[in-house]
Amino acid sequence: MQLWQRHTLGLVLGVLLCLPLSTVMAEDSKAAVMTLLSEAKTFFDEGESEQAAAILERALRIDPRNPVLWHNLAGIRLQQEDWVRAASLAAKSNSLAVENKWLRVRNWVLIALACDGMGDMDCTMEARNRARALAN
């Protein structure tokens, strides 16, 4: 992995699991999902990424259409270099993050990194372009 890629990966992972909950989330379950998100973050920070993934999946059972949870799950897979799964989960987050442009930018960055991990240059370029187009 090149230096800029490491830098971007670090940037993505650095803010992973700190993302605020989006407005599409069901109100009633917000507090429970916040608790799980913070638990997942603790595990993630301690390097227990699979534990963090399991807790994010618990949160998704409560709030199945929360794009932030899907995004964080994608980030964990990216960190584990499970590129295919990371890209698919980020695409899922994108399909739900209709009102969160910033999250969609992050998802495209994540997809670009995953595509790069797979060595698929076309895919990397396209995802990067999408991220850029959205960010502007």
């Binding site: 890209a87 698919s88 695409a91 399909s95 698929d120 076309d122 895919c123 396209e126 187009a133 959205l134």
Partner: peptide, 13 residues
């Protein structure tokens, strides 16, 4: 341009 277009080459994983 704002959405994943289902472009097949993008997700041929």
């Amino acid at each position: 341009a704002d959405s994943y277009s289902g472009d097949q080459h993008l997700f041929k994983f």
